[in-house]
Design a protein around this nucleic acid. Structure first.
Lengths: 216, 216
DNA sequence: AGAAAATTTGACCAGTTGGAAAAATGTTAG
DNA sequence: CTAACATTTTTCCAACTGGTCAAATTTTCT
């Protein structure tokens, strides 16, 4: 009955080489379209065209629009939380936070579509991700907030709310992906080039380290 | 030919009392729906239902979906830029920035739908607002960036990039409206109540003033 | 009241959408 | 080569979408 081997896992494994390749092409296209128009705003036809195939052909690889979106969301959420996971108990507080900030900026620069996919989901009340937010994400943040608090106890950083600190890092970094049009419009063509991420990184490092008020 | 009076202005003025009232009801409903689903994701039927009327009835007051969206966008953009306009040359630098921050947080708390409407527009590349961004907005930001720079020249605040400073204020404050689900999920039911805006305001004031690194 | 104007409703339409079915075509292992 | 299987295309559909139109109803003005 059916292919000779590997039938034990019913869900996860695509069978053939073509299936794996095409699924990747489709997901790539779907990421672009979903991140730009949101779930409801995106159409299968658009995705199919971006993937260079017909709609029914696409539906041969993914049973529905939702299926594509689910796959993208889980993949993205995983990628998205990596930098926070990497916050290290052993490292130096300031250095760790600095490198977290840098990693997040790099992600906004290198994976803007993923950031927008996430933002779209949040704006709509996270209908497909609320479980992850209240489960894995909350747990991870709780854990890292405790770590940050221990750094404050040790006098390594100023005492503030660790949760809102994490929020503010998310907000400032993702802003450069999600509000890219605005950033570029305001900076103008002279300063809006690729260098803007460098500038942003420098600025944020500065802000998070020392704030605005002159010392003394 | 038509009503007796006030025909000189063709566009702006609704004629009757009912028209004014219903248009307000519709815009109110449209704001809720658009902010939640984006332009493409929102349907006239949804808006009509939220406004308590039939679709053709709604279309009697607004000629199209786009017309509603345009009205909301212009109204929102105006409201949205008010706090930045209020940055005062005469005032004390630290006090001015502090109160800008506070005003922006209050807006996120009191007008979350407007914030999400804006965010949706940005995510989609600002197809309906790009002119404003490159025109009025850029001009206003340029002007205020110069003001901030003058504060830095006078040694009132640390020297950094004024543009990215403004971005970071936008990002951190609007985050609480746009990513509300996430914020509430992470804070949990104990800390996720209405007090979260107070906590956020306190934290941000702290961060922007003094940063994380202990002095000395 | 009663005419004129404003508002609301119901029926309708053409284009789009997510998706199903089956036929046609390509690929591969024996 | 050819049968079994995988892939692609063609055709189709029912639900939904933005929007129109004329008829019915309500409000307003005299």
């Amino acid at each position: 009955m059916g292919p000779v081997s590997a039938k034990s896992k019913a869900k996860p494994g695509p069978k053939t080489r073509i299936q794996r390749e095409k699924q990747d092409v489709i997901l790539e296209a779907a990421l672009t379209i979903f991140s730009l128009h949101g779930f409801r705003g995106a159409t299968i036809d658009q995705i199919a065209e971006a993937a260079g195939m017909s709609k029914p052909n696409l539906l041969y690889y993914f049973p529905s629009k939702e299926a594509m979106h689910r796959r993208l969301m889980t993949g993205m959420l995983d990628l998205w939380l990596d930098p926070l996971r990497a916050l290290d108990n052993e490292g130096d507080a300031i250095a760790e936070l600095r490198s977290y900030l840098r990693r997040k900026i790099e992600m906004a620069r290198d994976f803007p579509r993923e950031s927008r996919l996430f933002a779209n989901e949040m704006l709509q009340g996270a209908p497909h991700a609320i479980d992850v937010l209240e489960g894995e994400l909350k747990q991870l943040v709780d854990e890292k907030a405790q770590l940050i608090e221990s750094w404050m106890d040790a006098g390594k950083i100023n005492r503030t709310d660790p949760y809102h600190l994490i929020f503010s890092i998310w907000a400032t970094t993702q802003h450069y992906a999600d509000f890219d049009v605005q950033v570029r419009a305001v900076l103008g063509k002279d300063r809006g080039g690729e260098g803007r991420y460098e500038d942003a990184a420098r600025f944020l490092e500065n802000l998070f380290m020392d704030g605005l008020r002159p010392k003394g």
